[in-house]
Design a protein around this nucleic acid. Structure first.
Length: 270
DNA sequence: AGTACCACCTGACGGC
DNA sequence: TGCCGTCAGGTGGTAC
């Protein structure tokens, strides 16, 4: 699930439920999510700190943490990455808990925030230097915060197939397989189109598709049921039809992932 | 440099 | 019913 629009929805969810709250206790059900950091150390790093603001960079969320009591405690950031199956839920402790809650933050308002991750590919970190974290993970600029001129500069240093470029988090941060397909469909570009074959209007269309698709999906809380009928996503399954021309969608492999394309409108340029 | 492939993980689904 | 292969919206490393 979690690409940029989904992660943006999680960020807003955190703002609604956890803003200004203090982390009173952290339950670590699955230490694997902490990627080598012992549960004790992680708990010590975040306990008795207050959620202040949130910032999303690509598919990552950074939550600012402020120490509440101790003068010696440091400011820092909780970092969430959701892998393929991660999401956040709040609960108050009375209802039965869902399966696969890997980590639970117990807050001062009585709510608990669970990091649920069936496939355990998601991660949670604590860092005191957000920019260093972003640099160390080689994350490019956020896909929704880049302007057209900078976007053209990024494309200028690459040569490969466009879908690979869109999904490369070190170039542009936030786009995964599903939204790459949607963006390329809206821009009427074949996933394997080499950057060298794209003219100025292709690049303009692509930039506009990135913005319109990601903005729209985020505004709809990344809920595909609410996506426009003209979106590929609603038809992205075997035997699905192109919502514009009704051709049967085909699948190809590009950049190691399955891509859905309209065989009539997304033609390969060389 | 660009792409494919595997590993990390777990579960769903279809075929036999 | 049960077993098996395949696939799934994440990333990172390696190998052509």
């Amino acid at each position: 699930m979690p690409e940029l629009p989904d992660v943006e929805a999680f960020r807003r969810f955190l703002n609604r439920t956890a803003n200004r709250q203090t982390i009173e206790k952290v339950t670590v059900r699955d230490e694997l999510i902490l990627r080598g950091v012992p549960a004790r150390r992680f708990q010590a790093q975040v306990k008795e700190k207050k959620f202040t603001s949130t910032l999303r960079h690509g598919k990552y969320i950074f939550v600012s943490l402020q120490p509440v009591e101790s003068r010696s405690a440091r400011k820092g950031f909780l970092v969430f990455h959701f892998g393929m199956t991660g999401y956040l839920r709040s609960f108050s402790g009375h209802e039965p808990e869902p399966e696969y809650n890997r980590l639970i933050f117990h807050l001062s308002n009585g709510l608990s925030i669970a990091f649920n991750c069936r496939r355990r590919l998601g991660s949670i970190w604590y860092t005191e230097d957000r920019e260093e974290f972003i640099a160390r993970r080689h994350l490019g600029p956020d896909a929704l915060r880049i302007d057209f001129q900078d976007f053209l500069q990024l494309l200028a240093i690459k040569k490969g197939g466009i879908k690979c470029v869109l999904m490369d988090q070190s170039i542009l941060s936030g786009i995964g397989n599903i939204y790459a397909d949607e963006i390329l469909f809206q821009a009427r570009l074949h996933p394997r189109t080499p950057l060298t074959a794209m003219d100025a209007s292709d690049k303009k269309n692509l930039f506009e598709a990135i913005h319109s698709v990601l903005h729209k999906a985020a505004a709809l809380n990344a809920n595909p049921a609410r996506f426009p009928r003209m979106y590929l996503n609603r038809h992205r399954h075997s035997r699905g039809l192109c919502p514009r021309c009704q051709a049967t969608l085909t699948t190809i492999h590009a950049c190691g992932r399955t891509a859905y394309v309209c065989p009539r409108e997304q033609l390969l340029k060389h």
